[in-house]
Nucleic acid binder design. Structure first.
Length: 271
DNA sequence: AGACAGACCTGTGAGC
DNA sequence: TGCTCACAGGTCTGTC
């Protein structure tokens, strides 16, 4: 499910229910996530008062003075706020219990996500420390993209998916932004001119902002914390639309497999 | 250093 | 109805 807009939508949806609350317990129904839920998670989290709910790339950081929960939603995860007595459904793997009788419930059919605990600054957790800039923060610039791309022979779509270059871009929004910028997703990243990276930089920001505004994209699994879907799928220009007319020139959109993942693009508008 | 395949999982829809 | 196959929003690990 979740790329940056979906994780940010989730963050906004759970923040008010968590902030200022104290964790009173953790229920783990199935610890076998992509990284196993640590046995010590409950003891570490118990009694901690939640100060902030932050996001870095696609990671959610639920922070307290004594440490932080680091939650990743993988491909099919979601988080909901519900009452403690709400019956658990299939794939509801972890509950974080709160002192007001609510529960933060982690649901993930494919179990590609995880729930961890970091004792210190969660940004020092190695996968987080290695990430590139946040695309909606000021340190993400067109120049950064251009400079990082020099000498790279990989396709620009795969370059955008690399979190070390820019954080949080997944396959949907990489495809969408490349369409908006008029760039062929198969083109080598190192062979795109600086002016075109300026367009791509603007397109990424525009597409991500619009998707957050719409509450994310729900293709299948994604739900906001209150259970509602996102609505950005209605604004997708190319993703999942192979064979349908290009919104600009009406040429049928094309789908190709590259690096084991689908590309969607207009063969006429993108070069 | 960088590029790529493979691994981890379950569910769904298409085609037969 | 039921089987098999392809495919899905991510990212870590290992190999060349």
């Amino acid at each position: 499910m979740p790329e940056l807009p979906e994780v940010e939508t989730t963050r906004r949806g759970i923040e008010a229910a968590l902030k200022g609350r104290t964790i009173t317990g953790v229920t783990v129904r199935n610890p076998r996530l992509r990284q196993p839920v640590p046995p010590s998670l409950g003891n570490k989290a118990m009694g901690q008062r939640i100060d902030a709910v932050n996001r870095r790339a696609k990671y959610l950081l639920i922070e307290s003075a004594g440490g932080s929960l680091i939650i990743h939603l993988g491909m099919s995860g979601n988080l909901r706020i519900c009452d403690a007595d709400t019956a658990a459904a299939k794939h509801d793997h972890v509950d974080i219990l709160l002192d007001d009788g609510h529960v933060l419930r982690y649901h993930d059919p494919r179990r590609f996500g995880f729930v961890l605990w970091a004792d210190g600054d969660p940004l020092r957790y190695p996968p987080l420390a290695a990430l590139g800039p946040e695309p909606l923060e000021a340190d993400f610039t067109a120049l950064h993209l251009y400079q990082k791309s020099r000498g790279r022979r990989r396709a620009v779509r795969d370059f955008l998916l690399d979190g070390h270059i820019v954080a949080g871009i997944g396959n949907i929004y990489a495809n969408e932004a490349l369409f908006v910028a008029g760039i062929d997703p198969r083109r080598a990243a190192g062979r795109i001119a600086q002016a075109r990276y300026a367009r791509l930089h603007g397109a990424l920001i525009e597409v991500l902002r619009a998707a957050i505004e719409a509450g994310g994209t729900t293709l299948k699994d994604f739900r906001r914390a209150d259970g509602r879907p996102g609505y950005f799928q209605q604004q997708l220009r190319v993703y999942g639309r192979a064979g349908l007319p290009c919104p600009t020139c009406a040429t049928p959109l094309r789908r190709e497999i590259q690096g084991q993942r689908s590309l969607f693009f207009c063969p006429r508008c993108q070069h």
